[in-house]
Structures are given as C-alpha cells and as structure tokens.
Amino acid sequence: MSDYLNTLLFTVYPYVALAIMIIGSILRYDREPYTWRSGSSQLLRRKQLMWGSVLFHIGILFLFLGHSVGLLTPHSVYEHFITAEAKQLLAIVAGSIAGVLCFIGLTMLIHRRFFDPRIRVTSTFADNAILVILWVQLALGLITVPYSLQHEDANVMLALSEWAQRILTLRIEGTAELVAAQAWPYQAHILLGLTIFLIFPFSRLVHMFSAPIRYVWRPGYQVVRERNRRAQQTRLPAGE
C-alpha cells in the first residue's frame, strides 16, 4: 500500500500538476484575459507594501532560479567545476538567505492583507489562500536546512535532483523511491510545491508569466504629458 501511495504522490501527481498548470494557464489566458493580473492593492494602503513586496520578490526570484538550476542541472555538468558537497553548501547558504528575506517579506504582506480592514474586505479567498500556502511552503523549505546540514555527503541533494530530472525526462522508473527515502520535510516541501503548480492557473500567480521584462531594453523614453490645470481653471464658461 505504501509503495502504491508513493508512486501516486511522487510519480503520477507531478505530471497531473504540471499538466493542469500548463493547460489551465493557456485556457485562462484565452478565455479570461482580463483576470490575468496581480490585483495590486497599493491604492488602498501603501504602508508595508513596498518593503514586503521587494523582499518577497527578491527572495522568491532567487529561490526559483536556485531550485531550477540546482535540481535540473545534471551532476555530470558541474562536477568538473564544483563538488557535490560544495554545491550543497552553496545552496544551503544562498537558499537560507533568500528564504529568510522572502519569508519576512511575505509575512509583512500577509499581515497587511489580513489586518487592514479595507484590504481584507476586497481580498478574495484565493488571494488569502495562495499567500498562506506560499508562507507554509517557505517555512517547510527553511525546516529542511538543518536536515541538509546533517548530510554533508550531499546524497539527499543528488537524490532529489535525480528525481526532478527523471520526472522532466519521462524516466519514471524508480522515481518514487528517491523521494520516499527522504525525511518528511523534503516530502512535504515537494508535495506542496506540486500543489502550487496545480492551483497556479486559478490564482494571481499567473501574472509572473507577464512580468514586464521588456521595459528593461525598450527603446527611447516614455512621454508623459501633464494636463494644464491652470489653463482649465482660467477658461471662461461658454457664452461669456
């Protein structure tokens, strides 16, 4: 029974979550393009937003990049430049710093959304739920740090990397065993991460696909014209 459950959670569930994320995002963008936004609440209350948002986004971008490169890069690619043990130590240090920054920023955003009356009234269940889920996911990620420090041989990191690479390349044989052999924080972190992929199309997270990166290299300057208020105030009424 446990083997069947492990196969369901760590071999079948990843493909279900990824398929729903991809297909659901395409359908939402096609059918409900006006809901494809972050739903900023800056106009309601700017306090706490800037610091919380900056810390959260800096941390989450580093974590996303680190997880993507760290898990999906085969060991044979980097073993000539850095050992697995050194790579794990680098991941622990950099990931801990980014995780703490992200955790602090997200905690500020959650406090702002839950304890400000105006924002709380205008928030949907999905808005609140995704923030709490991300907060729990960050907490689980930070909990894995002491466990990783106990494995200086980097076997856990290599096993989880092998699992992610096998899932991506459709080599499913033995994938469940790679995760089932690890401590519960790793398993919970992976399952909740897959769940975030699953609910991705139904949340405000879709706006990450529309990040305005093109503004970094856009040509020229944006022209902004201010309306001449003094001229409007001195304009005579019609007929005079």
Results as ranks from 00 to 15, higher is better:
residue 36 W to K: 01
residue 165 Q to T: 06
residue 136 V to I: 15
residue 203 S to M: 08
residue 224 V to I: 15
residue 71 L to S: 04
residue 103 F to T: 12
residue 79 E to N: 09
residue 236 L to N: 05
residue 98 A to I: 05
residue 209 F to K: 07
residue 110 I to K: 04
residue 6 N to S: 15
residue 116 D to H: 14
residue 130 I to G: 09
residue 98 A to P: 00
residue 237 P to M: 07
residue 102 C to P: 04
residue 160 L to Y: 06
residue 196 I to Y: 05
residue 208 M to R: 03
residue 94 A to I: 14
residue 222 Q to N: 11
residue 224 V to C: 04
residue 24 G to H: 09
residue 130 I to C: 09
residue 3 D to Y: 11
residue 233 Q to S: 13
residue 162 E to D: 11
residue 25 S to V: 03
residue 34 Y to H: 15
residue 82 I to Y: 00
residue 28 R to I: 07
residue 208 M to N: 05
residue 127 D to I: 05
residue 53 S to V: 03
residue 57 H to K: 08
residue 103 F to N: 11
residue 60 I to E: 07
residue 105 G to I: 09
residue 156 V to T: 15
residue 117 P to N: 09
residue 213 I to D: 04
residue 163 W to P: 04
residue 192 L to D: 00
residue 83 T to K: 03
residue 160 L to A: 04
residue 228 N to M: 05
residue 160 L to P: 01
residue 8 L to Q: 08
residue 159 A to W: 00
residue 212 P to A: 08
residue 170 L to T: 03
residue 38 S to I: 14
residue 204 R to Y: 10
residue 112 R to P: 08
residue 70 G to R: 00
residue 120 R to N: 15
residue 228 N to D: 15
residue 116 D to W: 03
residue 176 A to S: 13
residue 201 P to T: 15
residue 53 S to L: 04
residue 118 R to M: 13
residue 18 L to I: 14
residue 65 L to Q: 03
residue 118 R to S: 13
residue 160 L to V: 12
residue 193 G to R: 02
residue 81 F to Q: 12
residue 121 V to L: 12
residue 220 G to I: 06
residue 175 T to L: 03
residue 168 L to G: 13
residue 61 L to H: 06
residue 76 S to D: 09
residue 89 L to D: 09
residue 139 A to G: 15
residue 162 E to P: 01
residue 152 E to G: 05
residue 6 N to G: 02
residue 189 H to L: 06
residue 27 L to I: 14
residue 187 Q to R: 15
residue 29 Y to C: 07
residue 14 P to A: 09
residue 120 R to S: 14
residue 218 R to P: 01
residue 147 Y to I: 14
residue 189 H to T: 00
residue 1 M to D: 13
residue 84 A to I: 01
residue 201 P to R: 14
residue 158 L to F: 00
residue 140 L to E: 03
residue 86 A to L: 09
residue 233 Q to F: 10
residue 178 L to S: 06
residue 114 F to S: 12
residue 209 F to Q: 10
residue 13 Y to V: 10
residue 197 F to S: 10
residue 187 Q to N: 04
residue 162 E to W: 05
residue 130 I to E: 13
residue 202 F to T: 06
residue 75 H to N: 00
residue 70 G to F: 00
residue 133 I to P: 02
residue 174 G to R: 05
residue 235 R to Q: 15
residue 183 A to Q: 14
residue 165 Q to V: 01
residue 69 V to C: 00
